[in-house]
């Protein structure tokens, strides 16, 4: 579903990704782990097409298409979802409006009809309930006044409503207490597990992987994948630290 081949990228002229290769087949969940500053968030922004993150070499193919040739909103319509490490606040715009307009823009790009107001509210209510979130939270401005954990849960509600084919979740586990972690883990399984979906979990710690069993674990260091393995690699990293393993 996602094939990254020898990807190089710079930020503000500084090389951050240095020949990163990674393939995530449909139906699988992969984890990327690595020390601070390794380039994990940079990878997620490059996949999302964030301005300022310049690709200087390599290719990325997403569901058979050249991902890097697409604008950020086209990538979303193609089924890519980015869970932000630091979800962004948008004052004055309710989550309801934000998500509805985004979803309808995606649907239009795919040649589907807009969801009506009533259809959307029904969907939002159901997805918020799955997360144990009061739907009234979604009437508030996007992420404004939310705690760190609430922001991460709100990202999962967006993901549930949008039903992407592929999710890149950047440290979705940070800022969550153990109960929230369990709920979010269950949500990732519910939303992203399936024969024609896949996900890439970026995480610092093993603990999220107790709830979302990855098919493969990769270690990112200095902008490249330096090791890959099965779920046991995450445990080994937890025990021995990145310096030993990578």
């Amino acid at each position: 579903m996602l094939e990254i081949n020898n990807l190089h990228a710079t930020v503000a002229g500084k090389p951050i990704l240095n020949g990163l290769s990674l393939t995530v087949p449909a139906g699988e969940v992969h984890a990327i782990m690595g020390p601070n500053g390794a380039g994990k968030s940079t990878l997620s922004y490059v996949l999302g097409g964030r301005p300022g993150y310049e690709v200087t070499g390599g290719t990325v193919t997403f569901i058979g298409e050249d991902l890097l040739a697409q604008e950020p909103h086209e990538r979303a319509a193609a089924g890519l979802f980015l869970g932000f490490q630091y979800p962004v606040e948008i004052p004055g715009v309710s989550s309801m409006q934000f998500i509805r307009e985004s979803l309808n823009a995606q649907r239009r790009a795919r040649g589907q009809a807009d969801l009506s107001g009533a259809e959307f509210i029904r969907l939002a209510r159901a997805e918020a309930a799955e997360l144990g979130m009061d739907v009234d939270m979604l009437k508030r401005p996007v992420n404004v006044g939310f705690s760190g954990g609430e922001k991460k849960r709100a990202e999962m509600v967006q993901m549930g409503i949008m039903r992407p084919r592929f999710a890149v979740l950047d440290e979705t586990d940070s800022g969550l207490d153990i109960d929230a972690l369990r709920v979010v883990g269950a949500e990732i399984n519910r939303i992203m597990r399936g024969p024609d979906r896949a996900a890439l979990l970026i995480t610092h710690y093993q603990r999220l992987l107790d709830y979302v069993q990855p098919d493969r674990v990769h270690v990112l260091a200095a902008g490249r994948i330096v090791r890959s393995g099965g779920p046991e690699l995450a445990l080994e990293l937890e025990r021995e630290g990145y310096a030993e393993v990578a």
């Binding site: 097409g49 950020p72 962004v88 995606q106």
Partner: peptide
Amino acid sequence: DPTQLFYAMSRGLPP
């Protein structure tokens, strides 16, 4: 704010 703009576009909104 470019960060807010990117967030909105990453959700599917054209610029």
